[in-house]
Write a protein that binds this DNA or RNA. Structure first.
Lengths: 214, 214
DNA sequence: ATAATATCAGAACGACTGTTCGGCGTCAAG
DNA sequence: CTTGACGCCGAACAGTCGTTCTGATATTAT
């Protein structure tokens, strides 16, 4: 299925099919393609659709209305993306600001990630790290952390904890011998030991994201 | 349009429409819904579709074949996701393995990210970091870096550079006074100075991703 | 120039599809 | 019991849709 050169008309058809599908959620009929691409006969549309199929640009379902599929990259379904609210910023000196479940958020205040990366967990939210206080967790200024709210943790989890000395940090969590060991991700740094009742888990880090300017 | 309770049959219809759309790229016809949901009459399907529309679960285009749209969350278009090939792993001791433009890759060997994050740049590829050699760039073992291939860089870019002493590192790039300063992201570490002709830029880091096990 | 091929137009056919209508059974309110 | 709302069934209609056929025009090769 080597891709050959397309005629102007065929390019226009592909483009229209894309846009139509985008707008309506279903593919156009042969006649709709004809009207939009100024092709007077359905047979010509059909003729060119067959060429597009033979060259691997589309796939068709015979005798099925709107049975046209664009074959582009492997289809990543719409359902594989989800919006995660950007709840705010995280400082070392404050508890994590949990998102208000009832509050809405503007599109700008959310990031979209594929479900492949973040799974189907409910209640996920994102925080942008401010300052280099999390540097021991290999997280730097401006990074975005996606968190799952929970108040317990398993050994090894990277969690946001609120210590009674009034700081929030991200550390790996280990419960051992009745005390809590908070292990920095950076192996060159030493762990912190704390009394469990002074450690308040706020959430677990699911993903860290760092973008560089273009 | 408050969402009311759905009957078993209506739930099944919604589910079928979702799956059908997922599988075929276009919505089912009334009769296809009827066959799959064991509804003998098209009028019953139509009847329930109208109810679903009134309650805000779907939207319909009158007198249009397959004119059914699911109304779900804010639609993140399929075109907002893209696959980025996972070209391989990156060690400190080897040059970056650039992806072969002609080679294909299996779905498992790619990650999908939203266009919002990675933009529309061509030729992007991802590498999984192996080892802690990039720790000075705040990148740890297992992290995924998305790179854009290029052989030049602007001041401040985080680039993968191949030094003549046979190591690959990720450093911030600065050209100053005829020499190249490679600045570790970790501010506590000292920069490396090098002769430009000993520095070979392989690509620029666009994004860093770190996932934690669920 | 001539033939072969590619592209297109128009029309028609049959199957597919959305819509509508009359009727049936159930169930709760009046 | 009657009434009406609800969910359902079967059938039929008209327009839509993919397909196919005949033939015309344009492009290219020989």
């Amino acid at each position: 299925m080597a891709k050959k050169k397309l005629s102007e008309r065929q390019k226009r058809m592909i483009e229209f099919i894309q846009d139509f599908w985008q707008d309506n959620g279903y593919p156009p009929t042969i006649r709709e393609i004809g009207e939009n691409c100024e092709i007077s006969s359905t047979s010509v549309v059909n003729y060119n659709l067959n060429i597009l199929e033979k060259n691997g640009y589309i796939s068709r379902d015979g005798r099925v209305s709107r049975g046209i599929r664009l074959v582009t990259e492997p289809v990543v379904s719409e359902r594989d993306s989800r919006l995660i609210p950007l709840a705010g910023r995280i400082f070392a000196s404050q508890p994590v600001a949990m998102p208000d479940a009832t509050s809405t958020f503007a599109p700008d205040e959310a990031i979209s990630l594929t479900r492949e990366l973040v799974g189907n967990e409910e209640g996920l939210f994102a925080l942008q790290v401010q300052g280099d206080s999390m540097i021991d967790a290999m997280i730097s200024d401006g990074d975005i952390v996606v968190m799952k709210p929970q108040i317990t943790a398993n050994n090894g989890d990277l969690v946001a904890v609120w210590l009674n000395d009034d700081t929030t940090t991200l550390k790996h969590f280990y419960k051992e011998n009745g005390r809590v060991r908070l292990q920095p991700a950076n192996p060159t740094m030493d762990p912190i030991f704390a009394d469990p009742k002074n450690v308040q888990i706020q959430g677990k880090v699911m993903l860290v994201l760092r973008q560089y300017k273009v």
